[in-house]
Nucleic acid binder design. Structure first.
Lengths: 340, 340
DNA sequence: TTGAAAGCGCTAACAA
DNA sequence: TTGTTAGCGCTTTCAA
């Protein structure tokens, strides 16, 4: 049983040619009922499973799309991936998923591997918005869709969340509560989300004529540790902020840990809004206000765009979707005159 | 630039035969320096990337392993996958990942797809421990490793966490605190973790001569909603439990939500230990005691076992590893005489 | 050190 | 309705 049966074994057993077998396994019709039955039986008997390798080689398509995410451990991405996978399966596509750990080098490797394997399309949240590695894909004529982070040098279909508006509204809310010293824990400025969320923050301050204080703008890297450190920094300032806006989920977690360790009282001494929903949001007291993103939809739309490009590639224009995040106000940013 | 260059294009440009090109791209040596250089230049100029499809077809191996998990949205699995991927990459293997949503039907589909694509091995946390679909893999001679859940009908290498001991120690701890009415929120009894965690619970009760009260054993499905519902049930009992042991992370979250909604005071009116670490554990007050598992190691060991079987398959015996979970005691299960 | 050629398992054009 | 056959792009013997 160790040697895999091929289409030829089936043909022999059913006493037909391999062409006829091929017709049956591809449901192409034009085969007599009785013949088909004989072939089906042979397939069953042998436990034949057709080689996708050989098939893809001939057809020049693999029905596979590659997904590249920067950090599979960040719960945001599995949710996006779930959205992609569901739609993909509906349309008969399979997915292969790789995580780059935010490394441009790993990302380029993965791109090459995906090309080697002949993926029909790629959905990517890049770790390197300025990278040239996307050209590799374009040269091969492989459709690409960018999710959550733009690709700068090339015209690529993109699905984004409106980061500027999301952080603008969060900060605006804090301002309207009476806060004047609002800090932001930033993401990497060479990523769309990192950059744009800072932009929204600044926009809100400017619009309400609040000064931009550089000591309140702390750089992070979207990882938990940096949120923790940033919060310590803010705490050690002579003039502490009365509110913190954190640019992503993991840094929010880190920041909240720091708050606890420092006994810097959430919702009393310091208000807080985080970008991205986190599990803990509704568990802590006071409950956490967040900017929430539609992960599943993000994935679904990304696949939709890719699908269109894979199947009707004739000069579609570049398309860009901007989904709106939702501000969920809870008790972590209540009005509190005492400390303002 | 749309047509992908093949080995033949390279050969032509470098004025050699395709055999020589093949030698170069595979680093087989036996090629004159100057020739090699010419070939390398040609490769660069054309942007040639070799087709893994054609290569695999010839070599009858894809350097790919398939990973099947029941629920990619459960943070436990991305962590295991990360462990697998890291080791796999070190050894030059690539991974393709699929999530079954706990559906045996989807799982069987995925198994077939993996076979079609010629994966060299499979690491699986099955949604169907009694399934026959594993036979498909065995018939093809594809090595398999089971993670976290056993495969019943076949001899399969397995990496497990000692569920019995984990829940035994958790419940023992509660007993030693003085609790006499300890409830358990179970996982599906047709899965190893679900079954064994109940086993450990019962074992502890028996050992300390506590009666087993069926009303305190509530069935769940490892999903958040069932944890919520189970907790409501327990609350509505005439004689409520004074402690709850929850069989997995998602149900723990659900249960804690219910506790809050019911205003059933954690750590005061009811002690709590959950199986599996959760983000929120150290954020809530009182902090949550948990049974913690070594996810990354689980993944690493699974790959190690698979690797050995893929490369030295000559009659290795079936191997089973049992990793020990760690009981992390925090304040959610403190002694509290008042309510006992 | 190099090349010619067979063949991996399949699809699809063409012929019968 | 069925069969013959030419490749898809590569690796690998065997021969030169």
């Amino acid at each position: 049983m160790d040697n895999k049966p091929t289409i030829e074994d089936v043909a022999k057993l059913a006493n037909v040619s391999i062409a006829t077998v091929s017709r049956v396994i591809n449901n192409q019709g034009g085969v007599r009922k009785a013949t088909e039955e004989r072939i089906l039986n042979a397939i069953n008997e042998l436990g034949y499973i057709r080689s996708a390798l050989a098939r893809s080689m001939k057809k020049k398509e693999t029905n596979t799309i590659g997904i590249i995410v920067p950090d599979i451990k960040n719960p945001f991405f599995p949710l996006v991936v779930a959205g992609i996978e569901q739609k993909a399966r509906e349309k008969g596509y399979y997915t292969i998923l790789s995580s780059t750990n935010e490394s441009p080098i790993v990302e380029e490797d993965i791109v090459k591997i995906f090309i080697e394997r002949g993926v029909d399309g790629v959905i990517i949240t890049t770790a390197n918005e300025n990278g040239d590695h996307i050209k590799l894909l374009q040269d091969q004529g492989i459709p690409i869709v960018a999710v959550d982070r733009v690709i700068k040098k090339f015209d690529i279909d993109t699905v984004l969340v409106d980061n500027v508006s999301g952080s603008y509204h969060a900060v605006q809310h804090l301002i309207l509560q009476g806060h004047k010293r609002i800090a932001i824990i930033c993401g990497p400025q060479n990523t769309t989300p990192g950059y744009e969320r800072l932009l929204g923050y600044k926009k809100a301050l400017e619009e309400y004529n609040l000064p931009i204080d550089e000591t309140l703008i702390v750089q992070g890297d979207f990882m938990e540790g940096s949120g923790y450190k940033a919060t310590q920094e803010l705490y050690s300032l002579d003039k502490r902020p009365t509110a913190i806006f954190s640019s992503n989920n993991l840094m929010t977690i880190g920041s909240l840990k720091a708050l606890m360790d420092l006994e810097w009282k959430l919702g009393e001494e310091v208000s807080f809004i985080g970008f991205d929903d986190v599990d803990i949001a509704t568990f802590i007291k006071p409950r956490l206000s967040v900017v929430s993103r539609p992960m599943n939809t993000l994935g679904e739309m990304a696949f939709q765009l890719l699908y269109e490009r894979m199947n009707f590639k004739e000069n579609l224009p570049k398309r860009e979707y901007l989904l709106s995040p939702v501000l969920k106000i809870r008790e972590s940013c209540q009005l509190n005159n005492y400390y303002l």
